[in-house]
Design a binder for these strands. Structure first.
Lengths: 134, 134
DNA sequence: GATAGGGATTCCAGCTACTGGAAGGTCAAG
DNA sequence: CTTGACCTTCCAGTAGCTGGAATCCCTATC
């Protein structure tokens, strides 16, 4: 199977597949004309990668997960550990984004958004907030 | 003021400040010995940048916001538009992360995490989910 | 057999926003 | 005069691709 077909089947761009070969996540054979030849196993791996990436695992995590997948003697605890670590990374990101979101949403609400130059968003960024009303 | 002091005051690493000069977000003077000399205005701009970046604005957004900040004839609507766009980018990211999170959290829960090789996380990634119970 | 098209190949560069490190110049203190 | 803390520039690397150029291969049609 050629790279184009694999791209269609896995939904991964051909460029990405070549990149994955580059960093040794897959190692397709080559036919005489130099084209990559993908077999079922390669296809399978690429689909695995696509799904792991879609869950936000880093490439290095993917490497680990694939190795575990192929290791019959793995312990599910190893997999779970990787997943839990990743989960906490995701949680941290969500928290950070939510904190940004809440500050920003507040500022946006405070800004009249009209044709006058006064803007609480800029004031906040410049830390020239208005004197607190006392 | 030298770069080290500016770094201390703004909380930005000296490296980052040099980078910001590189991409023309600030343009400090130079003293005779070649050292950068930062004045109040530069300090102010860098603090502005630091806060905008902390809210997740891209560098290009920051450039726009600074230009608006310095433009006395701006309309607050322009600022608000930039902020709202950014807010929706943040919202998208949060949604995507939450979707990853929920899938992953479910998988983690399903995995016994013991010394046996069976692992629903890997099964899911390999899309070899168990037959649905019918 | 020439040619046109749609593949495939490699390689180089660029994206974001820094960060690390090497090699060297400057300055104040002891 | 030396030491150490600064400062300078420049080059390279991070993550995970993506775009583009130049070239090659294969098939089909005229």
């Amino acid at each position: 199977m050629n790279i184009g077909d694999v791209a269609d089947r896995t939904g991964l761009p051909a460029k990405t597949i070549r990149y994955y070969e580059d960093i040794k996540l897959v190692t397709p054979q080559r036919s005489e004309n130099g084209y990559r030849v993908f077999r079922d196993n390669d296809l399978h791996k690429l689909a695995f990668l696509g799904r792991a990436r879609a869950l936000g695992f880093t490439i290095e995590d993917c490497r680990t997960l694939m190795a575990l997948y192929e290791d019959q003697t793995r312990e599910s605890a190893q997999v779970k550990a990787v997943a839990k670590d990743h989960l906490s990374v995701i949680d941290d990101k969500i928290k950070q984004l939510q904190s940004m979101r809440s500050t920003l949403a507040h500022l946006v609400e405070c800004c009249s958004g009209d044709n006058r130059p006064d803007c609480p968003i800029l004031n906040d960024l410049a830390q020239l907030a208005m004197e607190p009303v006392r």
